[in-house]
Amino acid sequence: MKVLKKLLIALLVLGALFYFVGIPYLQSYTKKYSPETTTTYDFDGTELQVHYSSPSKKEREIFGALVPYGKVWRTGANEPTTFTTSTGIKIIDKPLPAGTYSIWTIPNKESWKIIFNKEVPDWGVTLSSGGRETTRNEAADVLQVEVPVRTLSQTQENFTISFEDKEQSYLSFAWDRVKINVPISKLSQGKPTIN
C-alpha cells in the first residue's frame, strides 16, 4: 500500500511539473519559430485588431499537406488567432458584434471557410492529438463565411494576416502561393446581438 501511495504521489508531482513547467516551456519555444504578430486597422472610427503567430514555409508543402484540406485549422501557430472589433461590423453580409473572437479556418483548394468563434482557448490544438485536433468549441461559433482562393505569383514565406483597403476593405490571409480576401464593411443600421 505504501508503494502504491508513493507511486501516486510521484505521478502527481510529474504531472504538475509537466503542466506548470513543461507546457509553458514548449509554448515559449515554439514562439521562437512562429513569432507573435499584431496588426491593427482604423476602419472609419472602428478599431480592428488581429493577433496571431506567424509560421514560416521553410520549403515545406503547406496547403493540402502541413495544413490539410477540409480540416479546421487554428489559422497560424500556437494560440488561436484573435480578431477584435470595437464596434459591430459586417463580414461579407453577416453581422459581427463588437468583441474579441478566435478565428478558425477550413482551407480547401478552391475556397476557405472562415469561422469567428466567441471563445478564445489557451492553445490552438490539443497536445494529446499531437497537434492534429484543434481546441475550437463548434457550439461557440458566431458566424461562418466562405471565400475563394487567389493564387499568388510569388511565394509568401511567412503566414501573414493584414487589412487591405482597395475598392473594398478586406481582412487578408496569405501564405505560400495562397491568398484569401474576406470583405469587411460597416453596419448600415442597428447593433447585432449574439443569441
Rank of each mutant, 00 (worst) to 15 (best):
F116C: 01
T105S: 08
S169R: 06
V125T: 09
D141K: 01
P55T: 06
T193I: 14
I9Y: 05
I115W: 00
S169L: 05
I184H: 00
G45D: 00
H51P: 14
V21E: 02
L4T: 13
L14M: 11
V145G: 01
P148L: 00
H51A: 15
W123T: 10
K90D: 11
S111E: 13
K90P: 12
S169T: 09
D176R: 04
Q168N: 07
R132M: 10
L11M: 12
T37G: 12
G70K: 08
F173E: 00
G64K: 06
T126I: 07
W123H: 10
L4H: 14
V125Q: 06
Q156F: 04
T105H: 05
N117T: 01
Y52C: 08
S153N: 12
E36Q: 15
I194H: 02
T87Y: 08
E157L: 10
K109T: 15
Q156V: 08
S172F: 02
E167P: 10
K32H: 12
T155H: 12
L17W: 06
Q154T: 12
R136W: 07
I180E: 00
R132N: 11
G130V: 01
W175L: 04
K113Q: 11
S128E: 15
Q189G: 15
L11F: 07
K58A: 12
F63Y: 11
Y33N: 15
Q156C: 07
L187F: 07
W123M: 10
W123F: 13
I115A: 01
Q27S: 12
I184K: 00
S153E: 13
L8D: 05
L4M: 13
T30G: 13
L143S: 00
D176F: 03
F83A: 08
Q168R: 10
T155Q: 14
T87W: 06
E138I: 10
I62D: 07
S28K: 11
P107M: 07
L66W: 04
K186D: 03
Q154N: 13
L4A: 15
D42W: 01
A16I: 13
F63I: 07
E164D: 09
S102E: 01
T30A: 14
N181P: 14
S54N: 09
V149A: 01
P192H: 04
Q189D: 15
K32G: 11
T81W: 11
P183V: 01
G22L: 00
D42G: 02
T100H: 05
S128Y: 12
S34M: 07
S28T: 09
T40W: 06
F20W: 07
R136K: 14
E164T: 03
W175K: 01
D93P: 05
E167C: 07
T38A: 09
E36N: 14
F18K: 04
E59R: 15
W112F: 00
T135P: 06
G70R: 08
L4G: 15
L48K: 08
